Amino acid sequence: MKMPVLAALLSSAILALGGCASFQVDPSQYSGFLKDYSRLTPAQSATGAPVMRWVDPDVKLSTYRQVYIEPSQFYPRPQPTAVISAQALQSITRYFDTALQRELGKSLRIASGPGPDTLIVRPAITAVSTSTEGLKPYEVVPIALVAAAVNTAAGGRDQSVEIATEAAFLDADTQKVLAQVVRKGSGTPLENDTTQLTLDAVKPVLDGWATDLRLSYETLKAKN
């Protein structure tokens, strides 16, 4: 088994990003969703996007015949704002689930629950934020899910959109963590600091994360 390829498979969580930029998450922005961040190191996803990840060097991917994708969640629990509504947050997780199921279903049998020879994917959205373009980016503090609009005299300026994910990959039988990844992407800018965030602003990012995971798996399968 080629560990660099396996690492690429297990590092996705998800986004070529459909024109959306992706960049590494600073350790100060880790959410606490993952059990251990100390082993994360800078790496690249299957499509070359920067991620932070760790992969168990002893993992044997060939033992897994199917994958169970747990419903994605926000971590920590989000508080809706004037810019990011509860409905928008719900639509983001629902679409992320759909994207992961769609892409992985092209290459793997999707299990309805944990079982023998099953790899578990446990994804979370850990941050959604907006900031005024051209100014110092808003730093997502550890790690409340927020929508932050920088108030300036130029309040009509476009608002950049950032979204982050953390994911763990586990053995369904033992619950042993096999890999962990942290990743961030940049969505479609909003018109101004009062424009409502919708799913459309981050959909290309979610699609890219899911596609990246599938491409990584297919690369590994071709080399086995």
Rank of each mutant, 00 (worst) to 15 (best):
R102T: 15
D200V: 11
G48P: 02
S11I: 04
Y217P: 00
S160N: 07
V83K: 03
T63Q: 11
Q29A: 14
A154Q: 04
T81Q: 01
G155N: 08
G156P: 01
S131N: 05
S131Q: 04
V150Y: 02
M3W: 10
R122A: 09
Q101H: 13
G105N: 10
R77V: 13
G32V: 03
L190Y: 01
R65V: 05
A168W: 05
L40F: 06
E70W: 01
R183N: 13
V205Q: 03
I163F: 00
D207Q: 06
Q101L: 15
A124K: 02
A88M: 05
P78G: 09
Q87S: 06
A21T: 15
D56H: 02
I143K: 03
V25P: 00
S91E: 14
Q87P: 00
V128I: 11
A46R: 01
R183T: 15
L10A: 10
R214V: 06
K106R: 13
S12G: 08
R102Q: 15
G105D: 13
D212A: 05
G113F: 08
L206W: 01
T98E: 15
P50M: 14
V150C: 00
L100N: 07
P80M: 05
E139I: 13
E70I: 05
Q196I: 12
A8I: 04
A8T: 11
P71K: 07
A16V: 12
